[in-house]
Design a binder for these strands. Structure first.
Lengths: 244, 244
DNA sequence: GTTGGTCAAGTGGTAAGACCAGTGACGGCG
DNA sequence: CGCCGTCACTGGTCTTACCACTTGACCAAC
């Protein structure tokens, strides 16, 4: 009997989710006016403060624009949305959106090597040691989920070594989208468990302060995961998967 | 007589800003407990709903964690923060943070070429035409601010052509951080106004569907701006600059 | 007709007070 | 000593009221 933690979503959370869904799936088109707070409150059967908290959060993500006395307007999420709505786009409509999944893979592949090169430039030997420690733990791991978690931590350390805050913030956003899906994703990526050699090569290049080699090594670390990720996402389309 | 729009910040905005500032500058360290909503409301002289809206927005950006009945905890913004707090980090402490500025330049340089290559792969001739139109407008522009706006729009079109939602969302976040600073930044970048040739080369490569050439061309588009950007940010350190 | 002003209705912003629902620590009881 | 209930405190929600702003209609003066 597998028990799972009870989820208790607050009212404002639910309002937020509903409005966000309508914005993302186009039921509320860009430029459209939202119902007034009072109307929303009545329709949804909740209080106005609850609605307001949800709308303020929507405004915080730049998905709606609220003007004092002038109502709230939906904005084009493709034009104004941030990385934070990546999870919502990924699971669009009950299944995984393959275009979004592909895009995540592309971003990994495209950005990772550059970060590795920066880390090689700046990290110094200390970074190599830190990475070695992670790789060591990686080599002793057989559980797919734990392995992916460690892979994520490996990159976390690399990103720290790159010492470039923009990459750091991007990584945070991607991780926030990626990590919750790990339990559902990891089994499909089980094939790469145990393949620590690419990580060792990358670690060595970074520790040696060799950006060019690090860039190439990063590509070899990321490449094998890519096709597996795409198919993993595809396989997830009709699978319940890890929620929240 | 230069008039500027009157700014009227709502109470919850001000609370949000204050708390955010304290988190970013470390007055509220990671792991620390925030005062209770009731205490905050009393200390700041505002109502509890106003405080709640601000805290909910903080939670939305993953900078604080709120547990029902268990208070609110500050999280490490370097570990959990998203791209949306880039503007705040950039102007840390009244001046421009050079490390953040450098990082923005690095991200431009590192990611731009990959996006250009993707756009070349996927855009087709139609994308070339769209880019041509922007370049044409670019060539007729002498005002520095307008020129930078158009450069931003050029990349906007490129990112659309790359058809990869993650890059799109990243670009949105960077743009949201970059655009407000443009009026203050553009004059320092006036040197590049009129240099449309790199853009033409890039446009041609993308229109021709040549990823490798597009990648190289993108580097040549971005490179000249980089040193100017760094010094522009530096010059901005002791200049009022565009607020909000 | 255009300009400018006033007004009313609707909307978001703020406040106060009350109560519900979790959390956590303290102290009594076995 | 350990378990467990109580209670104070915290966040979550609702109600009600009022303020501030936007919009559009209407009207007077030019």
């Amino acid at each position: 009997m597998a028990l799972k933690p009870v989820t208790r979503k607050s009212v404002s959370d639910q309002v937020f989710d509903q409005v966000l869904d309508e914005v993302v799936d186009g039921s509320l088109a860009a430029g459209e006016q939202l119902p007034s707070e009072r109307q929303l409150a009545e329709v949804l059967g909740v209080s106005r403060p609850a609605v307001r908290e949800a709308l303020q959060r929507m405004a915080q993500t730049r998905l709606v624009e609220v003007r004092h006395g002038g109502g709230a307007t939906v904005r084009d999420f493709r034009r104004y949305g941030g990385l934070d709505l990546l999870p919502r786009l990924l699971v669009r409509g009950g299944g995984i959106d393959p275009a979004v999944a592909r895009s995540i893979v592309e971003a990994r592949t495209s950005i990772g090597p550059g970060i590795a090169a920066l880390a090689a430039e700046r990290g110094g030997p200390a970074l190599g040691v830190a990475l070695d420690a992670v790789v060591e733990r990686l080599s002793g791991t057989t559980d797919p989920v734990a392995w992916q978690e460690l892979a994520l931590e490996f990159w976390d350390v690399v990103v720290d070594g790159a010492d470039s805050i923009v990459f750091r913030l991007m990584f945070n956003g991607l991780r926030a989208a990626y990590e919750p899906a790990l339990p559902a994703l990891a089994p499909a990526l089980a094939g790469e468990v145990g393949q620590v050699d690419p990580y060792r090569v990358l670690t060595a290049a970074i520790g040696a302060g060799d950006p060019a080699t690090a860039r190439a090594a990063a590509e070899r670390v990321l490449a094998p995961t890519n096709e597996s990720l795409i198919s993993a996402f595809a396989a997830l389309t009709e699978t319940p998967g890890g929620d929240d």
